[in-house]
Design a protein around this nucleic acid. Structure first.
Ligand SMILES: [Mn+2]
Ligand SMILES: [Mn+2]
Ligand SMILES: [Zn+2]
Ligand SMILES: [Zn+2]
Lengths: 141, 141
DNA sequence: TAAGTTCCTGCAACTGTGTTGCAAAATATT
DNA sequence: AATATTTTGCAACACAGTTGCAGGAACTTA
């Protein structure tokens, strides 16, 4: 709890119930979270709008990043230390499990370089892989 | 026009105004189309729902495929011949131009293989790259 | 080509997601 | 503690997408 407060202070954010609670949800969760997950699991009943604004604040500050998904839902996950305010450095692959629906940031799997046709210049690449995750694979055996 | 009719018949679809018109919009367009593009550019004013249902029918039949985007809008583009009903085989990279906002299917750029951590099994990979496209790069010179 | 059947369309109503303006409440500053 | 700044919750809105249903269009068969 103290830890969460210091963390927020380091990012120049004032300490509020929603920020503490939402941040701790992220640190306590392995996978990524959707807006609905937060609305459901936060012990306090924050207004939808507060959750949206808190998430946006965290994205702006480089605390969390969004994850594009094939079904066009929005997911959020904690950034690594390399992300700064207004400047994200997330170049890892994302994995969505078809079985348990968990979304992982594979921090150790970097986005591969892709050779584009003449004239195309890449600025940003997103790789989303779906399949069966480590946990679900073990369960199946 | 005759061509469009035969094409639809080959897929076992009955011939309707909306299907003819929406299909021809795809064949006449280089990049991908959003629902709104179709609503705007179809000479006839089809109901929103009709457009949604026509797009879904085309996706089901393997005529078009959806493209995931970073801003979570839904785009559609024509499939290659290898796609069958209920069974898509699109393993190409998608490119979104930050300048002209066109989305390209880079049919000749295949999705690179990614080495996942132990226990993760990949079923499907999506690669979306954004940057500057061929056209916009030429214009800048 | 006409009748009957099947399928598609348009409308209305609804759900879900995200946004904005504003006053009240909470937090930070002095 | 008083003041200034931020954040919150509410209401209202915008927009994308879905569903049920009745009427209309397209297909089938004769
Ligand atoms: Mn991530
Ligand atoms: Mn494509
Ligand atoms: Zn799993
Ligand atoms: Zn371009």
């Amino acid at each position: 709890m103290e830890n969460t407060i210091d963390f927020l202070k380091n990012y120049g954010l004032s300490i509020t119930e929603s920020r503490k609670k939402i941040l701790s949800l992220f640190t306590q969760t392995k996978g990524a979270l959707a807006h609905a997950d937060i609305e459901r699991n936060a012990s306090v009943n924050f207004d939808r709008v507060t959750i949206y604004r808190t998430l946006q604040t965290f994205v702006d500050k480089g605390i969390i990043h969004t994850i594009p998904t094939a079904d066009n839902s929005v997911l959020y996950a904690l950034c690594k230390d390399t992300c700064k305010e207004g400047h994200h450095h997330d170049n890892h692959v994302h994995f969505i499990c078809d079985s348990c629906d968990t979304t992982y940031c594979l921090d150790n799997v970097t986005i591969p370089a892709v050779v584009l046709p003449e004239g195309f210049i890449a600025k940003q690449s997103d790789v989303v892989i779906s399949g069966i995750c480590k946990n679900c694979e073990v369960i199946k055996e």
